[in-house]
């Protein structure tokens, strides 16, 4: 294990390392879908895990560490969106033919993020929790701190917006290889 000066004062909770090693990839991918870039995703996940650390024993007893971590992630993401400048940027897309698969892969990711960027923060969070993290509507409501009805409403509105997102329809019909 790497040594970090000063950090040895902290007692690592039982099971915390196993959770981080097992789930950080999935949490980071959720963070990427929420924020659209890896540095912010890492910041989000680290923030959530740091918040979970002091209460890890309690969370394990409740069998709810991941739910809690995702809740912190979503709330932190929503705070960031409120705090940071998020003015809309006019964009235009020119049709292109790509010669390489890697271009298609990169553009597929760009299309996905561009589609998610069309969503208000709470709708985006619901999409990530429901359709990527595979949470139930009840779990999503608990994570978001809202009612199941609100989750359904956010999901419905998000799907309606995503139907019009350029490029996403092709992804959903599998025309672009991942």
């Amino acid at each position: 294990m790497d040594t970090l000066t000063g950090v040895e004062h902290l007692a690592e909770p039982d099971g915390f390392r196993d959770f981080v090693e097992a789930r950080s990839s999935a949490l980071l991918r959720s963070g990427w879908l929420l924020t659209g870039d890896w540095p912010s995703a890492e910041d989000l996940v680290q923030t959530a895990l740091a918040a979970a650390w002091p209460r890890w024993s309690s969370l394990r007893r409740q069998d709810a560490p991941e739910l809690y971590v995702r809740k912190i992630m979503v709330n932190t993401f929503l705070r960031w969106r409120q705090r940071r400048w998020n003015g809309e940027i006019a964009t235009g897309r020119l049709p292109e033919t790509h010669a390489y698969d890697v271009f298609a892969q990169v553009d597929a990711r760009q299309s996905l993020l561009a589609a998610l960027d069309r969503l208000p923060a709470r709708q985006r969070a619901v999409v990530v929790l429901r359709y990527f993290a595979d949470q139930t509507e009840t779990q999503t409501a608990e994570t978001m701190g809202c009612s199941v009805g609100a989750v359904k409403s956010h999901a419905s509105k998000a799907l309606a917006r995503l139907r019009d997102a350029p490029g996403l329809a092709e992804l959903m019909t599998g025309e672009v290889a991942s």
């Binding site: 294990m1 790497d2 970090l4 000063g6 950090v7 004062h9 902290l10 690592e12 915390f16 390392r17 981080v20 090693e21 950080s24 990839s25 949490l27 980071l28 991918r29 990427w32 879908l33 890896w38 995703a41 890492e42 996940v45 680290q46 923030t47 895990l49 740091a50 650390w53 002091p54 597929a108 990711r109 996905l112 999409v127 990530v128 359709y131 990527f132 996403l168 992804l171 959903m172 991942s178």
Partner: peptide, 23 residues
């Protein structure tokens, strides 16, 4: 689509990083 297109992260988060954030 979300599962298929979302890439793997370039690196993982480690316990040491989290500990440092706490400190």
């Amino acid at each position: 689509v979300l599962h298929r297109i979302t890439p793997e992260p370039p690196r993982r988060v480690t316990v040491e990083q989290v500990a440092y954030r706490l400190v």
